[in-house]
Nucleic acid binder design. Sequence first.
DNA 1: CCGCCATTGTAGCGAGTGCTACAGTTGTAG
DNA 2: CTACAACTGTAGCACTCGCTACAATGGCGG
Lengths: 189, 189
Amino acid sequence: MTTRREELARAATDYVLEHGLVGLSLRPLAARLGTSDRMLLYHFASKDDLVAAVLRVANDRSVAEVRALPAAPGVRAAVLALWAAVTSPRLSACQRMYVEAAALGLFGREPYASVVREANRDWVAAVAELLVASGTTRERAPRAVALLDAAMTGFQLDLPLDAGDPLLEQAVLDLADAVAAIAGAQGSA
Amino acid sequence: MTTRREELARAATDYVLEHGLVGLSLRPLAARLGTSDRMLLYHFASKDDLVAAVLRVANDRSVAEVRALPAAPGVRAAVLALWAAVTSPRLSACQRMYVEAAALGLFGREPYASVVREANRDWVAAVAELLVASGTTRERAPRAVALLDAAMTGFQLDLPLDAGDPLLEQAVLDLADAVAAIAGAQGSA
DNA sequence: CCGCCATTGTAGCGAGTGCTACAGTTGTAG
DNA sequence: CTACAACTGTAGCACTCGCTACAATGGCGG
């Protein structure tokens, strides 16, 4: 059985995924959910509390989707599969929200900074496991994920700028090669 | 001679670099600049107009700094020099603001979306010239910049999460290798 | 039936927002 | 001196914000 709070958190997440975190206001959100700001603040201690809950719901979805990805035949294929998942309609909205939250946390503003920190931890762990399952050694995975995660986040941030740009698709291929090189190389460090 | 508007734009930029775009409000900003919200709206048509001006000033600084970088002995060195520049005290604040603006533009909100679009164009061009001056062919430069720019943006976004992390430094080295590989390879595409 | 507790509606507070109307006050050109 | 334009201060409008005080309503255990 799901509590009313969880139900509201999920519905609110859908709303935020669509409208963004930045202008988020309790009254329009409540209207969309068929309730009132009064009730949101009854179930959540404050707006920040609600936002934190929403961020966690969205990140849980992202992480779950990555964990559900099957092991790929090689690192390169894993990267491409991850990119495909991350740009799918469902996850792209979550990623966009993550990027927005991370940007809001850039100046240490709470609750964004803390929640983003823990979300990133979970996300990195999930991606690392995908790489390991796809042939990367446990030892090498962290390095590979570091570049992979940063590049993908960067792609997401510029997505509205150059969606469909063939240069972007090429860059993803290049990224896959680079990550494969890191995962396979015997280089320094 | 600089107009009052330009002077205000520069001062406002310093303020925004320190406090961020998100909670930006005319009255506190004006107080810091020794003027009033009334005057800001006299010199700038609207808050959005002011914000656009600020974004342009900050981006001009970033681009100028990149253009001032000397040609490096090889692509790898160029990437490392760029990263050093971008994480220097002066530029890191500009980069942080760019990331914030890009995030605000994720949902198409103006004036962020448009200004970020043109800022990105200038930035990419400047970085491409640095790579070319450092040995990349003009033909290969766009591909190299695509990955380079995305990865660096991603690093910036996670900087508060793991500043000083040795994994980050390693990732920058890996990125340099990857970009060098793209710039030098005769691969497909 | 009573009392309790989770839940909800109404109304509003205090603060802050971008922006504007209006009345000056300069400095300068004719 | 005058007229005009550039600039600046005061006050306030209309609105939204997160949040709260207060008073119900409903169902369930005793």
